[in-house]
Design a protein around this nucleic acid. Structure first.
Length: 402
DNA sequence: TCTGGGGTCCTAGGACCC
DNA sequence: TCTGGGGTCCTAGGACCC
């Protein structure tokens, strides 16, 4: 029996949600109606476009390009900062509305959901449900969504990406040749900027070309990825809607520094702040980490990373920070650093390890300190608690550069 | 001209074991 | 002197997504 899948995709999510929030707070303008973007902070060197209005798109503004470029293309463009708290709020509102249709919902990202409607149609058609969702979101939440209607996740996602905004599109098997095969390969999910030129060199330019290409040759040239792209081009995807909450497989935080740093003591200070953030999230999820990974990006955008294993899985700030410092020392070669990141992998549930875990008094003390600090952070917000060393950070970042 | 931050998954090569 | 092959685990880097 065919599965009944919907993909719900918020149109210009960050910008729409910001617009709705501004209107709610009494704003006279709707930033969806003017050339506008949600952007990072150029002074903090994170000046890229996160979302754009339709008018900005008409000027040629593209997501992820620099704000500088966006201003060149569209001199009167308005720029608004991002606010993840608001986005989470609207994302939850959408999710709660969708729960009225099925409880088999995969939150694919903050602004996209897959719905498995297979046993939830109640004598209605999948297309009708999609149209109803599309209308209700607009009427009840104030922003618009595209809904893709299909028999698997890949086709539903491709369908929701057709013309925007506020549209419902189907992409059933028999529609593939005339709705999908004429599109350029760059439109296919999982084909990015590295693979597309390689396919062009093989005279594969449309999704249809890819669908008819020799699977053996694709497999030889691209490995598993070659098989995946061929299957996607042919509309084949048997993956499930993952509606059950899954704990993360890794947790990381990174920061592009306001100024480049080429001093290891200063890098260690940033690393401590990152460790605080990462271990806080670890403990909130009741997880312990076994692998620590430090990432660096030089001023020339050269990325490198170093990882190492801990003897015992932990969520302790002190233990993970020790390891992170050790790793940094091992591979930092005095380059001028633009970005530093810390992530932990190999996560296990705390309960599973707890009983077998060897603890000495020192560990126990450290654990109690961490959990006390967590409680304070929970109550008063993350920034209320900073360790003594963090307070010694120079206020003026320009001092950081040697 | 300036280029985020959060993830997942895959691959190639080296170490090590039998 | 010449020297296997299979398996697992680990690491660094890369591709892709939103």
């Amino acid at each position: 029996m065919e599965r009944q899948i919907l993909h719900v995709d918020v149109n210009n999510a960050f910008l729409s949600w910001t617009a709705v929030d501004m209107l709610k707070k009494g704003s006279k303008i709707d930033i969806r109606e003017i050339p506008a973007i949600i952007g990072g902070d150029e002074t903090k060197r994170s000046g890229i476009v996160l979302a754009k209005s339709t008018k900005a798109k008409e000027c040629g503004v593209k997501t992820a390009e620099t704000i500088y470029m966006a201003k060149m293309k569209c001199p009167n463009i308005k720029i608004f900062p991002s606010n993840y708290k608001i986005y989470k709020e609207y994302s939850d509102k959408l999710y709660n509305l969708l729960l009225k249709y099925t409880d088999k919902i995969e939150r694919f990202s903050i602004d996209e959901c897959f719905l498995d409607m297979t046993n939830y149609l109640m004598n209605d058609t999948l297309l009708n449900k999609a149209k109803e969702i599309n209308k209700r979101v607009k009427n009840e939440l104030g922003f618009t969504v595209n809904v893709g209607v299909a028999n698997n996740k890949l086709l539903a996602k491709m369908a929701s990406d057709f013309t925007k905004p506020n549209r419902v599109h189907t992409l059933f098997k028999e529609e593939i040749p005339y709705k999908m095969w004429n599109l350029p390969i760059s439109e296919l999910f999982m084909l990015g900027k590295k693979t597309v030129p390689k396919l062009y060199n093989m005279q594969i330019k449309t999704i249809g070309d890819l669908a008819k290409a020799d699977l053996k040759i694709l497999n030889k040239k691209f490995g598993k990825h070659g098989i995946l792209m061929w299957e996607y081009a042919n509309g084949i995807d048997n993956s499930e809607v993952k509606y059950k909450f899954e704990k993360p497989k890794g947790i990381g935080n990174s920061i592009t520094l306001p100024q480049n740093i080429s001093n290891i003591e200063k890098l260690e200070e940033i690393l401590l702040i990152l460790t605080e953030q990462v271990t806080y999230r670890l403990r909130k999820n009741n997880l312990l980490a076994k692998t620590v990974n430090v990432q660096l990006r030089t001023k020339d955008f050269e990325d490198s990373s170093h990882q190492g294993k801990l003897l015992i899985a932990t969520s302790s700030t002190k233990e993970i920070y020790q390891k992170a410092k050790e790793l940094l020392k091992q591979f930092y070669k005095n380059e001028s650093i633009r970005l530093i990141g810390l992530r932990v992998d190999n996560l296990t549930d705390k309960e599973e390890v707890q009983l077998s875990l060897f603890r000495n008094e020192d560990n126990e003390k450290q654990r109690k300190l961490d959990s006390t600090l967590d409680e304070l952070k929970q109550k008063y917000g993350f920034n209320s608690i900073t360790r003594a060393r963090e307070m010694n950070l120079p206020q003026n970042p320009t001092k950081w550069e040697q």
